[in-house]
């Protein structure tokens, strides 16, 4: 029998974890770019957006704060899909999918906002175009429908990772269930987007938001 891997408690200063995650993202981006012979040029400005999505709940404490971050995350998703649609670069099928998924993200934001106000909290300031600047740059750089689908895949994957993290932090039972039902919806989005990108639609038995 192979020895079990020793448990390592990796929790350290939040800044260190974020830096490590950023390095993983950066290396992964570079590796994929190089693997494709440099055909895919990744705008450095998009990395902070994806990192901020993935780590949306990294430094939150308490259900209300997590809800506020989740609302912002969903608002950013609404803007991102909206920017993709408005770019005029999406083909018929991808455009239909983006419109539908944008509607889903808006529904998530609405339900989470209601949950937050029920807790006595105030909805966060609405996301703005500045929040998706990096994403828009990536839209401009995309050379094909596959590139555009892959961009959405990256965003949705980071969102899944954020909601997985929320499962570790939320306390209220109904919020845990709502978060899981949203996470599962984002996972379904990924199936459709991967099919459009000609990728394996269900690559793993466990959905973690890992790349």
């Amino acid at each position: 029998m192979a020895p079990r891997e020793r448990i390592v408690i990796a929790d350290g200063p939040a800044g260190s974890a974020q830096i490590a995650e950023f390095e993983r993202d950066r290396r992964d981006v570079l590796r994929r770019g190089l693997g494709l012979g440099g055909a895919v040029v990744v705008a450095a400005s998009s990395i902070p957006l994806l990192l901020s999505v993935r780590n949306a709940f990294a430094q939150t404490s308490g259900d209300a704060e997590i809800l506020g971050k989740a609302i912002h995350l969903e608002q950013v998703a609404v803007l991102a899909y909206g920017a993709a649609i408005d770019s005029g670069r999406l083909g018929v099928e991808l455009s239909r999918v983006a419109a539908r998924f944008r509607d889903h993200e808006q529904q998530h934001a609405d339900v989470l906002t209601t949950a937050l106000t029920d807790l006595g909290g105030m909805a966060p300031q609405p996301a703005t175009a500045k929040d998706v600047e990096g994403f828009v740059k990536r839209l401009d750089d995309a050379e094909s429908q596959t590139d555009l689908a892959n961009l959405a895949i990256e965003f949705e994957t980071a969102t899944v990772a954020a909601y997985l993290d929320a499962q570790r932090k939320l306390i209220d039972g109904k919020l845990l269930q709502t978060g899981a039902s949203i996470m599962a919806n984002e996972a379904q989005h990924l199936v459709v987007l991967r099919e459009l990108a000609k990728l394996d639609p269900v690559p793993n038995a466990f959905v973690t938001g890992k790349k």
Binding site: L164, Q167, A180, E186, A187, Q188, V202, A205, F206, V207
Partner: peptide, 9 residues
């Protein structure tokens, strides 16, 4: 959540 999301996929 990781399992149920896979079932959703």
């Amino acid at each position: 959540a990781a399992i149920l999301s896979n079932e959703a996929e």
